[in-house]
Design a protein around this nucleic acid. Structure first.
Length: 598
RNA sequence: GGUCCGGUAGCUCAGUUGGAUAGAGCAUCAGCCUUCUAAGCUGAGGGUCAUUGGUUCGAAUCCAAUCCGGAUCACCA
């Protein structure tokens, strides 16, 4: 149990003992870290009980403080009441006990298995263009959330639903057919996803030119938009695809294959993985029988032209179409089917969708419909909604070529980390291969941290003109603190990976800078829980940065190798090993690696 | 228009779910390398927490209204 949890428990027991029959429970006790300007470690807020017990804050604080400090085996050594706040000092032996119990352990925040099966669907790209900067936020979030949920005891399935069919795919195919002269990734010496993406852009160029021509010939723009030959070709191709036309299917398989090869390279570089791939070409026909059942149950209704709808007006939403008049599916129909498919495939307790907030309404409707249909998968659906990444000029538009490409961005970040490492003159003692790995760690770490450090809900603006910083609130800062610790351990001949805490009894007090670090270290488990409960990996970024900051301040005032005494040296080694392990553990959940030297 | 999300320092963001004098980073300015890595540390300046009212011992946080920005509400995906 965490220390704040214990304090709540002990304090509520004390209050029950002092004031029997008042029914004070741990959850009613508010415990905060004591502000630095007061003495003490944790603070119990007295106000909620002042009214209840009809006592003055000072009187209540004194009695509660006396009791807590006087208790047998108390973890508190002193108390102080300041205007309604009871500041409690935790004993050094308690802190030492925490350190010796935790330092060197493999699992810093052990969790019992919840027995829950949780799917996290993320990435879910279209196969008509390469990944861009916006996808990266999705991918990092999804991966991190999967790891966090694993670390908190869940059985996690990472899934990717590939959008591999539809009119947008046909557009790239048509443009390729018309203009590529049989170009392949090999012949063009370009990644497959980029090659296909180029023809998607090409399609739009041709389309625009054709529309312009038709308008010049006197056609109205709206009509020209539908009549442009290349658009008609794309639609015709989609019909052929659905009919299973062998030539179209062959080209489709070939071009998608190029894209998958390209994606694989990107995913590998991003350091993410998937346990299950779904393809829309397999799932796009699902959902119809669910609609049929809904009709039988009377949850859905048919309009005169045969289209099927659900009435969500009672829930403050609209009527929503589920099947067209001609009996064909719309987008949400296949999502209903896929939700059920996922549930049946893995017996899911929870199904998380990492999708941008522009689909909030869609996801709300999806869940609501499944609930109304009485599908067992419904209640486990959770939309992890995140704000879109925008440019200073607005949204990224692949058709207008304003996207920041994911591969380019990764390359740029690695280049930047190389440049800054060389500038700082920190390349000595590394082999070429080690340097390459270091630049990769720093560059990719900075990129991931940059996209994960903000609350997912909030949209973010990225200015490509400003490079991502390697100073301040960054992964680099955390990596640097970690490398510094490793450097000390090397010097002291202490094993980083097989550390065994030495038995230690303290004869001197724990210093403030030491205490602040220990306090923060003790909070790791609750931060991890909060990240899982709130579906918010940015909490781990904030926490890790804060921890690294505390370490740097500590490092500045206390020497390890030249510690005042042997016991101080042992204590500080324990502290810094645990700090390094905690940083590594937290960053690992975000897919960020920490070098031992930089 | 309906629904949802957001508005905190010049910029980018935290704010432990209602607690003490609202905090970081960047940028600006002033200091700190003979000492375990200066990608660091210490300090300074910088705030009408969008606005107004309410709830109470106490509000950036909860409620109401208003203003501003965004998303969404297709027989599109």
């Amino acid at each position: 149990m965490t220390l704040t949890g214990r304090i709540k428990e002990v304090a509520s027991q004390a209050l029950q003992h002092l004031f029997p029959g008042t029914g004070i429970e741990p959850s009613m006790v508010s415990v905060n870290q004591t502000k630095p300007e007061f003495s003490g470690d944790y603070t119990v807020v007295l106000f909620p009980f002042v009214k209840l017990l009809k006592l003055k804050p000072d009187e209540l604080g004194r009695r509660l403080g006396e009791h807590l400090v006087g208790m047998e085996g108390s973890i508190f050594t002193a108390y102080q009441v300041v205007s309604g706040f009871l500041n409690l000092s935790v004993s050094d032996s308690e802190w030492l006990f925490f350190l010796s119990r935790t330092a060197g352990r493999d699992d810093l925040a052990p969790h019992a298995a919840t027995g829950k099966k949780v799917m996290v669907e993320y990435s879910s790209p279209n196969t008509n263009k390469p990944l861009h900067f916006g996808h990266l936020r999705n991918i990092f979030l999804g991966y991190a959330m999967g790891e966090v949920l694993k670390a908190t005891g869940n059985d996690v399935v990472k899934a990717n639903l590939i959008n591999d069919r539809g009119i947008h795919i046909c557009k790239s195919m048509i443009a390729w057919q018309r203009t590529a002269n049989g170009a392949t990734p090999e012949s063009a010496e370009i990644k497959g996803d980029h090659l296909v993406g180029d023809y998607y852009v090409r399609f739009n160029d041709i389309y625009k030119a054709e529309v312009k021509e038709l308008v010049a010939a006197g056609m109205e723009e709206a009509v020209a938009g539908k009549e442009a030959p290349i658009m008609k070709d794309a639609q015709e191709m989609l019909v052929k695809w659905e009919a299973g036309d062998p030539d179209v299917r062959e080209l489709w398989r070939r071009m998608n294959g190029w894209v998958y090869e390209g994606f694989e390279v990107s995913y590998k570089k991003l350091g993410v993985d998937f346990d299950k791939m779904y393809y829309e070409s397999d799932t796009y026909l699902l959902g119809k029988e669910i609609v049929e059942r809904g009709l039988e149950k009377g949850v859905l209704f048919k309009k005169e032209n045969g289209s099927v709808w659900i009435d969500l007006t009672a829930d403050g939403l609209d009527e929503k179409l589920l099947l067209r008049g001609d009996g064909t599916s719309v987008y949400i129909t296949q999502d209903l089917g896929t939700a059920v498919l996922k549930y049946n495939d893995f017996k899911l307790d929870q199904s998380i969708y990492v999708i941008a907030d522009e689909q909030n309404y869609h996801m709300q409707v999806l869940k609501l419909i499944l609930q109304k249909l009485g599908e067992p998968c419904a209640d486990g659906i959770f939309h992890l909604s995140y704000g879109m990444v925008e440019l200073p000029t607005g949204k990224m538009k692949s058709r207008e070529g304003t996207v920041v490409d994911a591969d380019d961005m990764m390359e740029e970040m690695v280049r930047l980390s190389k440049e800054q490492t060389e500038q700082a003159g920190k390349t000595e003692g590394f082999t070429e291969a080690e340097l390459a790995e270091l630049y990769e760690m720093i560059g990719m770490g900075a990129l991931k941290f940059y996209l994960l450090r903000v609350d997912p809900k909030k949209k973010m603006i990225f200015d490509p003109k400003e490079s991502i910083d390697l100073h301040g609130f960054t992964a680099t800062f955390i990596q640097y603190a970690h490398a510094r610790i490793c450097s000390i351990l090397r010097k002291e001949g202490v094993s980083y990976n097989d550390y065994q805490p030495a038995p230690l009894t303290l004869t001197s007090e724990i210093a403030p800078a030491e205490k602040r670090l220990i306090l923060a270290l003790e909070q790791y488990a609750s931060v991890l829980d909060a990240a899982a409960d709130e579906y918010n990996p940015s909490l781990l970024c904030n926490y890790s940065f804060h921890l690294a900051q505390l370490f740097n301040s500590f490092y500045d005032v206390h020497s390890i190798s030249k510690a005042e005494s042997e016991e101080k040296k042992l204590l500080r080694l324990m502290i810094i090993v645990l700090t390094a392990h905690t940083l590594r553990s937290a960053m690992q959940l975000l897919g960020i690696r920490l070098p031992e030297k930089m």
